[in-house]
Amino acid sequence: MTSILVLNGPNLNLMGVRQPEVYGHTTLSDIEAMCRAHATAHDLGLAFEQNNHEGVLIDRIHAARGTHDGIVLNAGAYTHTSVALMDALSSAGLPAIELHLSNVHAREEFRHVSHIAKVAVGVICGFGAQGYILALDAMRGHLESRG
């Protein structure tokens, strides 16, 4: 069974209450339930995690080798600052998709820079919680096309 790690970075534990005008009212628990239902319906294994600490996220990426087939990463603000996360993804040797709830390109200039995109197979942004389902489907399609 294909297995995907969905990894969420800093402040995403506050979804639903933090800036709902930008991120919506859906909580991370709601998104996890939505992803688990989608994964079950499409015969995907799924690990869903969140952590506010860069080093822990790096550890999770390293541990994904040999356990998961791909990574969906919503690195939050670390997207724009963390060369270490970029290096971890590059070193893990697994395909990754960068994910954002908001359209980062329609926001502040500093959000237009992504270190993660440099090593990702693709980027999904601006679709809110539905972006997680889009990312799961995109990763599944990517993995199937590789054989």
Results as ranks from 00 to 15, higher is better:
Asp30Ala: 07
Ile31Arg: 10
Ile31Phe: 14
Ile31Pro: 14
Ile31Gln: 14
Glu32Arg: 05
Glu32Gln: 08
Cys35Gly: 03
Cys35Thr: 04
Ala39Leu: 02
Ala39Thr: 00
Gly45Thr: 08
Gly45Ile: 01
Leu46Trp: 03
Ala47Ile: 13
Gln50Pro: 09
Gln50Met: 05
Gln50Gly: 09
Asn51Leu: 03
His53Asp: 09
Gly55Ala: 15
Val56Glu: 13
Leu57Asn: 07
Ile58Trp: 08
Asp59Tyr: 11
Arg60Ile: 04
Arg60Thr: 09
His62Lys: 14
Ala63Phe: 04
Ala63Trp: 06
Ala63Met: 04
Ala63His: 04
Ala63Cys: 00
Ala63Pro: 00
Ala64Gln: 13
Ala64Ser: 15
Gly66Trp: 03
Asp69Arg: 14
Gly70Phe: 06
Asn74Ala: 08
Gly76Ile: 00
Ala77Lys: 05
Thr81Val: 09
Ser82His: 04
Val83Trp: 10
Val83Met: 05
Asp87Lys: 15
Ala88Arg: 08
Ser90Val: 00
Ser91Gly: 11
Ser91Ala: 15
Ala92Asn: 12
Leu94Gly: 07
Leu94Pro: 05
Leu94Phe: 04
Pro95Leu: 10
Ala96His: 01
Glu98Val: 06
His100Arg: 09
His100Asp: 05
Leu101Phe: 03
Ser102Glu: 08
Val104Asp: 08
Arg107Gly: 06
Phe110Ala: 12
Phe110Ser: 14
Arg111Glu: 10
Ser114Cys: 09
Ala117Asp: 10
Ala117His: 07
Lys118Trp: 02
Lys118Val: 07
Val119Ala: 10
Val119Gln: 06
Val121Ala: 10
Gly122Cys: 09
Gly122Pro: 08
Ile124Asp: 11
Gly126Ile: 10
Phe127Asn: 15
Phe127Thr: 15
Ala129Pro: 03
Gln130Cys: 06
Gln130His: 13
Gln130Phe: 11
Gly131Thr: 00
Leu134Thr: 00
Leu134Ser: 04
Leu134Asp: 07
Ala135His: 03
Asp137His: 07
Ala138Ile: 06
Met139Ser: 11
Leu143Glu: 04
Glu144Val: 04
Gly147Arg: 15
